[in-house]
Design a protein around this nucleic acid. Sequence first.
DNA 1: TATTGTTATACTCTATAACTATA
DNA 2: TATAGTTATAGAGTATAACAATA
Lengths: 149, 149
Amino acid sequence: MTIRPLTANRLQETSLAQEVQFLLARARAQGNTRANELLAEEGLKVRSFSVLSLACSGMNPTQRELGEFLHLDPSQIVALVDELEKRGLVKREVDPSDRRSKIITATNDGHTLYDRAYALTMAAEDDYLGTLSRRERAQLRAILQKIAF
Amino acid sequence: MTIRPLTANRLQETSLAQEVQFLLARARAQGNTRANELLAEEGLKVRSFSVLSLACSGMNPTQRELGEFLHLDPSQIVALVDELEKRGLVKREVDPSDRRSKIITATNDGHTLYDRAYALTMAAEDDYLGTLSRRERAQLRAILQKIAF
DNA sequence: TATTGTTATACTCTATAACTATA
DNA sequence: TATAGTTATAGAGTATAACAATA
C-alpha cells in the first residue's frame, strides 16, 4: 500500500471536496485498493470476487445477467469466468430453458474459497469504515442502496 | 446514456448487493457516467473538471498537490493540465518559493467555464441523488467525508 | 541526494464489431 | 431477425522508469 504524505490536505476546504460525487469516488478508490490488497491473498480481485460471489449466491445467474448487474460488457464477463473456470472455482452450464445462455455456478472449491474471500472483504470493510459507528454504517448502506438501485 | 433492461434485478437479494464496497462502486459509476454526459457539453470530463475546480479554488495548488489530492500520478496531471492550458482555461506559474514546482491557476476564461460546469455537476448530483431527502443527502456527505479523509 | 515536472513506454482495462449457435 | 456468448482488436486509462531542473 502506498503511503502518501498528507501535505495536500488543505485542499479539503475546496468546494470540490464537498461534492458527493468526488467523495464517492475517493471512498470507492480507497475501499477498492484495500479490498484488492486483501483479496490478492486468495488470488482474487474485487472483480473476480464479485463474479464468484454471484456464482455462490444460489441465484444461478447467466453471463448476461452478471454483465448487466456488474455493469460489465459480455466480453469482460467471458474473461472473468474463463479465469475462475480455469481455476476450478466455477462452471458453465447450458440453460435448459434457453440453450444460448450459460448459467454460472460455483464448484465446491469455489464455495470454500468464497467463504475465505468473503471474510477478507469484511475485513477490508472494517478497515475503511472503522471510524464509523454501527448506526452510521447502517445509514450509509441504506442510502447507497437507494442510489444504486 | 445506455438504457439497460432490469431483468437482473433479482440479484439485488444477493449478499454482494449488501456490501458497502459494491454499493459505493455502483453509485460512483452511475454518478460518474451522468456527470460525464453533462460535462461533455462544456468539453470537460469529471477528471478535467476536478483539476479546473481546484485551479479555481484560490488555494494555488502545485501539480504535485493536485496529483496527491486526486490520487493521480504526476504524468496524468501533466496531461490534464496540458489539455486545460491549451484551451486557455488554466496557466502554469513557477512557484517562487520552490522553482521546481508549478502552481496551477485558472484564467478568466477558466473561471467563466467553471461556473457553468459547476452548475452541470450540481444538476448531475440532483439527477442521481434525486430520491434522497435533504437530510439523507447531508448524512451521506458527512459520512463520506469521514471515510474519504 | 532528493524532489518536481516531463517524456516515453508498457500494461491493464474498457469498448466495439464481427462471428456462432440458438431462439 | 434478434439475442447469448465468444473472439479479436483498438482505444482509453493507468502505472513505471528515466531524465532535466532545482532543492
